[in-house]
Design a protein around this nucleic acid. Structure first.
Lengths: 206, 206
DNA sequence: TAGATTGTTAATCGATTAACAATC
DNA sequence: TAGATTGTTAATCGATTAACAATC
């Protein structure tokens, strides 16, 4: 049960398992197996068992996994068995779309602070939140103990804003700006860049 | 120059290289090296050279790479040295945000057809395009020879719509629905699921 | 020439997979 | 019991990295 040095690639698959389990649960199913899960996900059953074995034993020989139990356990491992408060930085078209998108909230990631440097936007009220100047970053982040930020500023500003966020204590950045951020090793960064996905697929076309 | 069986993981890095090169070029730089590129991207220089070696020789010993040339070559390899016509399927909040987002267009992926099944939306005019019923999928896709679709329908409908798209000749799907699609081996699928990225990062928090 | 950097080979490292004893 | 599936070990596979001859 060495929750310690689990390969990051394994961590990356846990949300996929979680999603599949939730789906099965919503369909009313109660038990599943590594084979069924693997078939649905296009992954080998051995890999699923191996991945889970990093964290403990969750199944029963001859039977499989109780879906609700495994779901809970994976949620606990990922620390998504709780609510997270998130800051949204950048309130242009993209930032507004992100706020409007309900998916984060539904999964327990609550955007409770919004920042932008455009004077036209500062002070604006949206869904009960106020758009604030970036100068207030330090105050708000420490007051609300926020550790996750969604970065939706232009590429040219992203690195600088990221630096500030990290100084203020942010530990995880979901970056929508199309630029690779340079950050210290203890800071998490994930990228959302749909265009890169299209480019990748284009290789295989024609 | 075996453009043949290049590992998919290598293909996945080409858009990252492309993005970094474009950035350097915009900054007015003309020459770079695998070391500089690697430092910026947090990747080993050997990996970059190895990746590129799958496709040919693009550098000069002692000097490095001419940025504009390497950019062009990678764009050609990825087939993004041209414009692509894309269908958007699903015109709810998410679909509208995707259409409104300029990033696709800017990189040569043009959304030229929009589909939704909501009678309220069908017929609506947006940016010179008409929202059409899914019944028109076949006609429009074959008429415009569209091979890429962006899927932004609810999770419950995604697999069924994907099946239809594939029947109609779509070869690549950028899927925003939070569900793993089951597709034939010759069909490309990429996933955009920001929540999964947050879940992955949450593991490392606290 | 001296210094730098490529492209490539070989070694290392890590991840996936096959197989099976344990056991429900 | 017979059948099924887990958790884990060992083998395989593939990707990353170190090192260096070639050469600009």
């Amino acid at each position: 049960m060495a929750t310690n040095d689990v390969p990051d690639i394994v961590i990356g698959r846990l949300p996929i398992y979680l999603r599949a389990l939730t789906l099965l649960q919503e369909a009313g199913q109660e038990i599943t197996s590594s084979h069924e899960l693997g078939d649905r996900l296009g992954i080998g059953s051995a890999q699923i068992r191996k991945d889970l074995s990093h964290f403990g034993e969750f199944g029963k020989q001859g039977t499989g996994y109780e879906i609700s139990y495994l779901r809970e356990q994976i949620a606990k491992i990922l620390h998504v068995d709780r609510d997270w408060t998130v800051a949204l930085v950048g309130f242009g078209d993209l930032g507004q779309a992100i706020l409007h998108y309900g998916g984060f909230h539904r999964q327990g990631f609550h955007i409770e602070a919004i920042f932008d440097n455009d004077p036209e936007k500062i002070g604006q009220q949206i869904e009960g939140k106020t758009v604030r100047s970036l100068d207030n970053l330090a105050k708000v982040i420490s007051a609300q103990n926020i550790r996750i930020a969604i970065l939706a500023v232009p590429a040219g500003a992203a690195q600088e804003v990221a630096n500030t966020l990290i100084e203020m204590g942010i530990k995880a950045i979901l970056n929508y700006a199309p630029i690779t951020l340079s950050v210290p090793g203890n800071i998490q960064v994930q990228y959302v860049d749909p265009v890169m996905h299209l480019q990748r697929m284009a290789y295989y076309l024609e």
